[in-house]
Design a protein around this nucleic acid. Sequence first.
DNA 1: GCTCATATCGTAACGATTACTATTTAAGGG
DNA 2: CCCTTAAATAGTAATCGTTACGATATGAGC
Lengths: 156, 156
Amino acid sequence: MNPIENISQQFAAHKYKLTRQREAIVQVLLDNEKEHLSVEEVYMLVKNSYPHLGLATVYRTLELLSELHIVEKMNFGDGVARYDLRDDTHAHMHHHMICHVCGRLEEIKDDWLLDLEKRLEREYGFTVTDHRLDFKGTYGTCKHTGCKRDKEKKAV
Amino acid sequence: MNPIENISQQFAAHKYKLTRQREAIVQVLLDNEKEHLSVEEVYMLVKNSYPHLGLATVYRTLELLSELHIVEKMNFGDGVARYDLRDDTHAHMHHHMICHVCGRLEEIKDDWLLDLEKRLEREYGFTVTDHRLDFKGTYGTCKHTGCKRDKEKKAV
DNA sequence: GCTCATATCGTAACGATTACTATTTAAGGG
DNA sequence: CCCTTAAATAGTAATCGTTACGATATGAGC
């Protein structure tokens, strides 16, 4: 089943309409599934295929997609919410590496946490439905570039 | 070494002054180290010991403490930044369980990720300096309380 | 085609955060 | 001690991401 069809069904299942606007937004997400787009970025991109679309609609649609678990809403501390299309088969395989130096953000699709989730269930009676794992650090190739201690450096 | 002394040294080491305002804020964090306080909450609490303190100072101080890695700035998606005092010995042992139903937030201080971090180093040449691991789900004791599918339910 | 709930549009309002200016404070040298 | 000077604070205005709102448009079912 193609992704749009799949999403269309999920909309229907919850009695939401897949309007042209929503479809245009979903298409942007599909075309950029490697990215973690902000609302503003989605807004810019969707203007290409649907120039008239309003910003509020982008906010509403992304929020809706998030509720339907079609996208994941996340926050990397840069002051804007970012959204990432999630693949059902990778629901629990969504980790990030964020480099202090170059700012690169790489995604790891591997399930490393199943054992831990079982342990939470066992030890705390807590059933995990989702998780978020972000690693911060530096790539070997970035290490030479000074340290990040002083904010003044950044300011200059 | 007591915590304030320790923090005082870190300030000095970076040529920052530990003013009375900053000390009052740090004390609030120490007194509430189990909590994940928002700026507004810190502001309210610190008013008890330092009534005249301004909100901007709380923002600036928490930002500074975050740069010095004395606190960790985090975001749980509720629209406000939250800060948590971090214990050096627990730098890598800071996970959360967040319950969908009751909203409870529990902290787990156990290092579950050392092996994964070694693997990142090996496979990606990525040196981890910090990580964040949040589990979302439900506690067994909360399960009976309806499902979260419909936003309308929440709105009512 | 008509009806009515749903969705969109554009913009105003909101709330968290940051930026700015004047004032105060603390540390070091006479 | 007092003076100087850089750093810190206070109070508030400005900014910016996000949400709320009223009016208009759309589309599925009859």
